[in-house]
Design a protein around this nucleic acid. Sequence first.
DNA 1: TAATACGTTAATGTATACATTAAAACAGAT
DNA 2: ATCTGTTTTAATGTATACATTAACGTATTA
Lengths: 217, 217
Amino acid sequence: MARVEDAYEQLKSQILDQRLPFGFQATESEIADLVDMSRTPVREALLRLQFDGLVELVPRRGVRVSPVSASDMADIYEILMALEPAAAASLASRGLNAPEIERLESITRDMETALADDDLDAWAMADDRFHREILSLHGNRRLTAFVSALLDQAHRARMITLRLRAKPIASTQDHRDVLAHIVNRSPEQAKASFAAHRERAASELLAILRDLRLPQL
Amino acid sequence: MARVEDAYEQLKSQILDQRLPFGFQATESEIADLVDMSRTPVREALLRLQFDGLVELVPRRGVRVSPVSASDMADIYEILMALEPAAAASLASRGLNAPEIERLESITRDMETALADDDLDAWAMADDRFHREILSLHGNRRLTAFVSALLDQAHRARMITLRLRAKPIASTQDHRDVLAHIVNRSPEQAKASFAAHRERAASELLAILRDLRLPQL
DNA sequence: TAATACGTTAATGTATACATTAAAACAGAT
DNA sequence: ATCTGTTTTAATGTATACATTAACGTATTA
């Protein structure tokens, strides 16, 4: 399934970095031409992207890159606020070994460095890696796959709002706190601080989306 | 997409009621013959079932109906324990109108009746409907779709263990409690009782699976 | 002019033919 | 007899041809 995988990755990365912008529409044949293969593997890749929530296969009209509305983002953050703190608490209660701690430490340091350097792209990347590393350490494959898809869906909106808000000093500190609670094996505090982290992120993001009058990006 | 939908529904129902048992294997062509259509729509249906976690497309060996191991069930219940209580709390905090309450009441009564009649199949069906109705009332489409898939995955294991355990008196009372807390608009209590409900269900189920030495069903 | 009915078009949905490739079977050699 | 290399086979992966059908445009009529 090299072709399917290839089409999937190409299209996904183009959607995530907005080379294929919100609302972009095309027929299956056009997409097939775009990635230079037949409709069959392209269709399969598009179905996967639809499951990921990144495109919609609109009957008769072709494929549309899903817009991300404020209400979508609210739904997504609601789920993240339930799942991620639970995963963090579980990690805190099982405890991490030294290399595992170092992985999270390293990502957190990268984030702090990026913040100090005012490198928002690097900051966003480290932020993402931290969240994904927590999932990966937790090890529930279903949870990882689902949350990962949600993080991808949120990605575009976050990149848009990243430069429209104050420097993410608090968020960076949040990560530091969450990590400390996990390392200290304090499940309840890890959960609470992660929930607070997401709650802040959600309310900031939604406020910006609404202010911009971008209910539908 | 009538064919895809048809194949998907046929196969899904056959998997859920174990006419296609755990570990059943077949090639795409055999499945296509089974449902009397070409491989194309069948393949698409199988991909959906794979996303649902009900089958695995094993390269070169065909499609296999996913076994449900104790560890899979543990993963599934862990997610349910984070998401369902959150949904119940959210419902409790927004409040339900009369017809919405009546829907949940009616399902709960059905469950109590089934328990009194010793009709375990009817009981299981009402149990399932209660959980799905909570989701549906909550209205987060992503959450509904995901949890719904998890409930389907858990279905087979639950049906196997249903007759191997004591009558589900406590679970029935749990639903009654959760409903009361939602109606009373007590989010924290709704969340706590739902979590307790799932915790009990999970530990009973996992204990039976392990006792039966069915780590892999 | 507006509305409706009909024909055309273009997109997906489906079937099928073909290419690719991994596994199995077999043969030969050590 | 076993291991290895090769051949065969059979399954998926892919391309393509075809069927179906919804949308659009056009023409006719009220």
